[in-house]
Amino acid sequence: MLAYVYSSTHQKADLMEVSTPELSEGGAVIKVLACSICGTDLRTYRYGSKKLDDGVVLGHELVGQIIQLDENVKDFHVGDVVSIAPAIGCGECRSCQKGFTNMCDQLKTIGFQFDGAFAEYMAVPKQAFQMGNVYRLPESEDYSIYTLSEPLACIINAQSFLKITKGDTVVIFGSGIIGCMHAELALGSGADRVFLIDHNANRIQELRRILDGVDFLNPKETDIFEEISRKTEGNGVDVAIIACSSGQAQEDGMNLLGKHGRISLFGGLPGESNGFIDSNLVHYKEISVFGAHASTPEQNKQAMEMIRDGVIHARNYTSFQYPLGEIDKAFQDVDARKIIKATIVNNTI
């Protein structure tokens, strides 16, 4: 079968023929229907990654149909269309026992330690079933929308700390799909005003068509500090979300916060990551600083339900679809910011 396989020696992935996975005890084999490219995949494409096992198949935002299933796996059947929360906990460490399986001491992730879904077929490990990471999808004409369950789950995790509510003003740095879904979720939580900041004028123009109720600001055209101060009557924002990999955005987000503000450092920084947080601002404005790493199975299921119910308009982001054989072109288009999101699609049901 075809698969997009990572080489730690060359620090890159290549499309190649590999053996079709076999059914293992307690697990399953799925036919991959769709798998989207996420920001972590893009960073690997650009820079390589020391976190990946050599020879692993990439891809973790996935939808697939079960074609083989161990007889001991309960509550699932051959033919079920499923998704998987990719961060799989051990179930035994302190974090897992407290319900934070995404913070597991022995965390193993689809597309990192387990082979992922940029492939025609994928093995689902026993541990994924045991930990409740596998979940069935509702019947759909287009299952590719549920590839967004995983990134949306990470957003749900981040916003669980921020407690966005009616009356809040939110600023989001970065207009990629993460920033867009953060904006949708913040508005859905009752935020009175959401600012979305990006330097890409073409991207902003495109997003005006699909994101209602969002104020777009381009720092190349507008002094964002003056504009947000004016629109918040000098109070600053209640919440800042850094949905891009930029230390400057972290610094600007901190400076835009008002008293008792909350900031989510959602986007990880490649390389040097020190010196962007002003501890005096934290001290004197009583600012709360939060991180967010991956998500739990429960948050993935909640995300799936939001997509099913139209709370998040997933189809706005999954229209750019590529066959597996054109995965390099998909990465190139995402890297060049020609598109918001690329979804690799195999055979439909």
Score class of each variant (00 low, 15 high):
Leu33His: 14
Ile156Leu: 12
Leu58Cys: 15
Ser175Gln: 08
Asp335Phe: 07
Phe161Tyr: 09
Leu42Gly: 01
Cys93Trp: 09
Arg94Tyr: 10
Gly261Leu: 00
Lys231Cys: 07
Ala191Tyr: 07
Gly27Ser: 14
Ala34Met: 03
Thr147Pro: 01
Gly174His: 02
Ile277Gly: 02
Ser83Leu: 03
Val282Tyr: 06
Gly291Trp: 14
Cys35Met: 11
Ala128Gly: 05
Leu23Phe: 15
Glu233Ser: 14
Asn72Arg: 15
Ile327Glu: 02
Ser149Trp: 02
Val81Lys: 04
Leu256Ser: 11
Asp142Cys: 08
Asp309Cys: 14
His182Ser: 00
Ile228Val: 14
Asp75Cys: 07
Met16Cys: 14
Ile307Pro: 10
Ser144Tyr: 11
Glu233Trp: 11
Asp14Pro: 00
Gly176Leu: 13
Ile339Tyr: 11
Leu257Val: 02
Phe161Lys: 12
Val81His: 04
Ser95Gln: 11
Arg46Pro: 06
Arg136Leu: 15
Pro219Asp: 03
Met16Asp: 12
Glu226Lys: 07
Asn157Ile: 00
Glu61Thr: 04
Gln299Met: 12
Ala34Lys: 01
Ala13Asp: 07
Met103Ala: 05
Ser144Met: 08
Glu298Met: 00
Ile344Met: 01
Gly55Ile: 08
Asn255Pro: 04
Gly268His: 04
Lys126Tyr: 00
Ile344Asn: 01
Ser229Asp: 05
Ala158Lys: 01
Phe114Val: 05
Thr147Lys: 01
Glu61Ala: 07
Val73Gly: 10
Val73Ala: 14
Phe225Val: 11
Lys285Leu: 02
Val5Arg: 13
Tyr45Asp: 06
Leu69Trp: 07
Gly275Ala: 09
Lys108Arg: 15
His77Phe: 07
Lys301Leu: 01
Leu107Phe: 06
Gly26Pro: 11
Leu58Arg: 13
Glu61Tyr: 05
Asp278Glu: 13
Val124Glu: 05
Gly59Ile: 09
Met16Gly: 11
Ile197Phe: 05
Glu226Asn: 01
Ile228Lys: 06
Gln332Pro: 03
Asp80Met: 13
Asp14Cys: 06
Ser319Cys: 03
Glu206Thr: 12
Ile340Gly: 06
Leu137Cys: 04
Ala314Trp: 06
Asp75Arg: 14
Ala158Pro: 14
Ala3Val: 08
Glu272Val: 00
Ala123Val: 01
Gly213Phe: 09
Phe331Asn: 01
Ala342Ile: 03
Gln250Glu: 05
Arg43Asn: 13
Gly291Lys: 12
Asn346Ile: 10
Thr348Asn: 13
Glu184Ile: 09
Gln302Arg: 14
Cys154Phe: 01
Ala158Cys: 08
Ile339Glu: 07
Val345Glu: 04
Glu221Trp: 02
Ile172Leu: 02
Arg209Glu: 15
Thr222Asp: 13
Asn218Ile: 08
Val194Lys: 07
Leu62Gly: 11
Tyr47Cys: 11
Gly59Trp: 11
Lys259Arg: 13
Lys108Pro: 10
Glu286Trp: 02
Asn300His: 11
Ser295Glu: 10
Leu324Tyr: 09
Gly267His: 15
Phe225Asp: 14
Ala183Met: 10
Asp115Thr: 03
Ile327Ala: 03
Thr40Leu: 04
Gln321Trp: 00
Pro219Arg: 09
Ser36Leu: 05
Gly213Thr: 10
Glu326Val: 06
Ser273Phe: 15
His77Ile: 04
Leu33Gln: 08
Gly89Ser: 08
Met1Cys: 10
Asn72Glu: 15
Asp168Met: 09
